[in-house]
Each structure stands twice: as structure tokens, then as C-alpha cells.
Design a protein around this nucleic acid. Structure first.
Lengths: 348, 348
DNA sequence: GTGAAAGCGCTAACAT
DNA sequence: ATGTTAGCGCTTTCAC
């Protein structure tokens, strides 16, 4: 901050070449003679020149900035996703501008506008709702940069999407529970208006159907917060015909289910079996290790990046690409055979 | 992307005012007459004008971009920190450019250079090592923007820092263990060359001293990865005089300790008590709920942001500010009375 | 292979 | 209160 930083002009001056040539050795946009190149390199070293990427971006209309939008950075799932994306970005000479929507549609729109104003070249979004992207596109009349939707909004028309085979994952999980003898299986979910969640519910429903258990389907909706989810499932757990198994459709829902079951003094999986969603280290550290439907989050990140780069390089086909990656059911300790319900001990 | 976006020039033209006036209604830098203001607003609406923040930043030399550097985004602690910072940034009209150092000094330097090239106005860094910032400053000969170091590098000269009272936290944790009758308490840590870690070790050592247990101090160093940490503590656990308690100095170390103890078929806290570091939801979901030293991560974020904004506004004093926030020992279920060691069951 | 010149879109001086 | 002008630092025609 002492005296103002040298510009490419200074470099050119010192090297006795034109700014254009200096620029060309820095960016390799066009061939440069060995003689000139050497002198420019020398000048750069002596001056400690660093290019101003802001100016370069303005002129070249290439910011090499990618906007990343997630509902909640502190959610392990999204944090892992961002981690994966950042790795790719660093390797490709891009930087990430990260914003959070807090699961709020209005905030999301506002934050995305901020990203667009910054001339980001592309967008990777876990939208707060399935219609987010369509809304954005409508408002901007098509003036939206290449975008990839991840985890949510999968299959939206006109945009590349990456997601999991949620229905299949949920089907496997529910079958597992039914195979264990469970007949009262509750689903715990933050909401039901997202397609990926609906797919999970559909998988659940299908499994129930197969076993003629459809009438016993029950879905607890608790909102995005831990407390809300916990409250929702606790209510269900208080009923006389309380579920003997809970299928939590997100990692936060799984946490909520565990806490609720504990709070009632019930045993996992003795009284209540639990299947979660997503798979992270802490889920198999303390007991019981959680049975869960693992989503391939690293592949989410790499697929999303690949798709985005294809769009940016113009190498992509006109139609949207829709990637669906398989989930893996990890059977661990939180699920066990169904047992007859005991009353909750008074005062427990 | 259809036809090129309107510029402030177009707005001015349509409103019948000068670009300067249009700019002034957009930015409120100088007062504008009601008449002109209204016409500019109208033009903006009709054209769907959005300012190009890249150009504005270049001209005004104010990017309103803050660089954030963390060792590992997927680590819950850092993810929570970033979450907190992003909230503040959004509220203050800034955006965050997020990079990860992967705990690697060279990568860190490279990524920070990339941030500086983008003319970020400030830097919030969890450095990969205590000397990172000094190295950066040396290399750039003072050409470094306002910076706040968080979690690590606390007390570094010439830079604002935010951290926890690690020694006190560790002292409390170790006293708790000693009070439970433990005499062989191992520390598990990724490394010992970071000041915050050394402070934790110092707190541990002090507590040992108080109880005349100094000769029994043992520190297992396992590197940053879960597997490395787990391997390190497993070795110690295999010894005949294995520890009856483990004090893990990071959340990853805690996870490693738990996994290692489990793998040996030992009970927590029956055979081995564990105290962790940091506090997150999953730590008190599955059993046993983890006793841990909680760092006030949200306050880390808000303090760091406040400090940075003070520097940016010039409202800060010349000397560096050093903030140390208290930790809280959360006593839960993973710590219990020391019991005589039993042999590890053969074949377990 | 190299240079001269024109701006990217915006805002800060300096006018009035 | 408003307009005019210059130029942030860079890249890119277009010449040679």
C-alpha cells in the first residue's frame, strides 16, 4: 500500500516494449518473440508487477468469477459441496463468490442479483425452491449466465442440473425398514414442495405400496430448522400408535429425529429405528452409527463444475443436461427389527 | 444475454441527464434534484439497468470484495465461521471470495495472491500457520490490504486477530478430567506448531502440573487428516499403560479419538474418557454426548467483521487489535470416573 | 512479431 | 444541482 502498484504500462516501459506485447507475455494470448518475452519477464520480476484482474475482466469481459449460491453454508452437505467446487475452481483459474440464501426466496434473488452485477461468468446454485431459476430467468429476460442447479430443481427445463436418484435411494431405505418388520414408518422432512424431497417421498410411498402398507404412510413436515423438525416428529412420537421407524429426508432431519427420540427416553434402534440422509463423519462416530442414504456429494461438485465449464467453453449442446447420480444405502446400527411398542415410561 | 446490457450512459441519455447525475442517483454520492432523480429512476426501470460493479470497482478503486481464506471449507468449524462472515457481508453490501488452502502453505500463498490480484479490499484468514501473514507481508513489501486473522496466528504483530482463550479452555477441560480421577491423559492434536494449539497444550500441562502429574504428560501428534490422527492415538491406546482419558484439541481429533477407541472395542467413558474441542450439533446427538471445549464461532465471525470494517473505514487505531474470546467447557457424557485399566480383549 | 490507439463502464475532478 | 472530461488498468482491433 506504500506507493501505487506498477501497471502493465510500467512493465512495458521498463522492458522497452508496448503494453500490448507485455500483455501478451502475461496472458499468452498471442505469440511473443523470445527477446521481448525475456525482457518483459525481467521487468515484471523487478517491478513486482501483478496484473489487475478487475481491469482485465472489464476489458476482456471475462471475470473468471463463478457465483455459488447455497441455502446454508454451515450445513455439512452444502459445505462439502462448496469445498468440492472450490477445488475445481482453483485448478481452473477461477475464483468463487459465495453467497447464502438462508432458504429464503427473496434473499436468494437479491444475492443472485448482486452476483450478476459483479459480472460473474457462471452460476452454481442450490436453489431455495424449484422455481427459483425460472423466476430469475423471467425477471432478467434471458440475461442469465450459464447456470448449473445442484441438488434441487433437478430436471428444470432450460438449465443443466445435477442431483441424486432420490426415489431409488428412498425406496431402498424404506424397503430395508420394511424388511426389518416395521409397519409404522414415519417420514420426517423439512418440507414437501421440493422435487428432490418429493422423489424421496415417492420412493418411500412405493416401498410402502409394495408391502400393502400405503394406508400407514405418514409424513411429518417440520420446516428447515432443527427445532422445528424436532417438534414435528416429537408430536408424532407422542401418539399411541407412534412410529417404530423414522426415515429422515435430510441430514438435519436425521439429527432432529435422533434428538426427539432421545428426549422421549426411547432407544435407537430398540424402540425406534432411524434412517437418515447424507453421510458424514460424525454420523458413524458416536452410537448408534447411523443407517443412512448417502448422496455422492463430491460427484455433485465435479459434475456441476464440468457442466459449467462445458457451457462456458461453448462445447455444450443446446439442450440442458440432467445428471442423476446414484445414492448408496449404508446400513449401520440405527436400524433394527421392529418390536412391539411399549408405553413411554411415565415421567421419562 | 440477448442484446448487450444498458449502461449508465444509456440511462442518462434516456433520462436526459448526464452520466454523472445518473451515477449519483444510483450511488447517492452527491445530492440530486427531485426532478432528475425521478427521471433517472424511471429510465432505470424501463431499461432494466443494472450497474456493472466491475467497472465501478475499477474506477472507484473499491471492489467491495472481501477475500476469505480457510484451511478446509468442509470442516464444520470453518464452515460455521464462513457462514457467520457471509451474513455480515451481505448486510454490509460486500461479497465474499472464498478460497481454501488445504492446510498447505504454498497453496495458501497462491490463493491469496489470486485474491489480491482481484483487488479485494480486505482479507479474513484462518492461516495455515502462524507465520503465514508475516510471510505474505514480507513478499508484498507492505502491499497488503486490511487483514484479520481468525483462530490461528493470534497475537501476530501488525495485524488484527480474533481467537479463543485456548489455554483457559484446555485448563478447565484437563482439570475436569483430573477431578474425575484420571492420571493418564493423552492429548491428541494434528500438530504442535500453531500457537493456538500450543496454548491448549499449555493449559493441559498447567493442569497436570497442579496435580503433580507432569511426568505423565503425553502428546500424540497425528497430522490434519482423520486417518492420521486416528492412527496416532491408536498406537498410544495399544500400550499397556494406555491413557484412561483423551483430550482432543480439534473437532477432527475428537472424531479420530472416538473412532480409535471404538475400533479397539473400548467403552466411552467406561474405559476411556474423551474431551473434544469445538461444539456442533452432531456432537450431542448420538451417544455418548461429547464433553467438549466450545469455541464461540459466531462471535469469531462478528468480531472479525467488525475489526475489518473498522480498518476499512479508517476508524481503527494504528496498533493491531487482539481479541480473545472465552471458551466454555460443556460437560456431557463422554467423560466419567477413571477406572483401572483392563486388558483389551484378545481378538477384539 | 510488434506497436498505436481505442475503449470496456464507470466515477471523480473540475467546471458551471 | 448538474454537466464535461478524463482516465481507472487492461486487452484488443488494426495497422505495419
Amino acid at each position: 500500500m506504500s506507493r501505487k502498484a506498477p501497471t502493465i504500462h510500467d512493465v512495458a516501459l521498463r522492458a522497452g516494449v508496448s503494453p500490448a506485447t507485455a500483455s501478451n507475455v502475461v496472458n499468452g494470448n498471442r505469440p511473443v518473440g523470445d527477446e521481448s518475452r525475456a525482457r518483459v519477464m525481467k521487468a515484471i520480476g523487478e517491478l513486482g508487477y501483478r496484473p489487475n484482474r478487475l481491469a482485465a475482466a472489464l476489458r476482456a469481459k471475462r471475470s473468471r468469477l463463478i457465483g455459488v449460491v447455497v441455502p446454508e453454508i454451515s450445513n455439512v452437505f452444502f459445505a462439502s459441496l462448496v469445498h468440492g467446487i472450490e477445488e475445481q475452481a482453483a485448478a481452473s483459474g477461477y475464483e468463487l463468490v459465495l453467497v447464502s440464501s438462508s432458504e429464503d426466496k427473496a434473499i436468494e434473488q437479491r444475492r443472485i442479483e448482486a452476483l450478476l452485477d459483479r459480472q460473474i461468468e457462471g452460476l452454481i446454485v442450490v436453489p431455495s425452491n424449484d422455481a427459483s431459476f425460472a423466476a430469475l430467468r423471467d425477471k432478467r429476460c434471458g440475461g442469465v449466465p450459464p447456470t448449473v442447479l445442484v441438488d434441487r430443481g433437478c430436471g428444470s427445463p432450460g438449465v443443466d442440473t445435477v442431483g441424486a436418484e432420490c426415489a431409488a435411494g428412498a425406496l431402498a431405505a424404506t424397503r430395508h425398514l420394511i424388511g426389518l418388520g416395521h409397519r409404522d414408518i414415519a417420514v420426517l422432512t423439512p418440507w414437501i414442495n421440493l422435487a428432490n424431497i418429493r422423489a424421496r417421498i415417492e420412493g418411500y410411498t412405493r416401498a410402502l405400496d409394495e408391502a400393502d402398507l400405503s394406508p400407514r404412510a405418514r409424513v411429518c413436515v417440520g420446516g428447515p430448522t432443527l427445532d422445528g423438525l424436532r417438534g414435528a416428529i416429537e408430536q408424532d412420537l407422542h401418539r399411541a400408535d407412534r412410529p417404530t421407524a423414522i426415515f429422515a429426508l435430510t441430514n438435519v432431519a436425521a439429527l432432529a429425529a435422533i434428538k426427539a427420540v432421545r428426549a422421549l427416553g426411547l432407544d435407537i434402534p430398540g424402540d425406534v429405528s432411524i434412517v437418515g440422509f447424507d453421510d458424514f463423519d460424525w454420523m458413524c462416530a458416536l452410537r448408534p452409527y447411523l443407517t443412512t442414504v448417502a448422496q455422492p456429494v463430491d460427484e455433485f461438485a465435479s459434475s456441476a463444475w464440468r457442466l459449467l465449464m462445458q457451457r462456458l467453453s461453448g462445447a455444450a449442446r443446446a439442450e440442458e443436461v440432467r445428471i442423476e447420480l446414484p445414492c448408496a444405502l449404508k446400513v449401520r446400527e440405527s436400524t433394527g427389527p421392529a418390536r412391539p411398542r411399549l408405553k413411554i415410561a411415565a415421567g421419562a
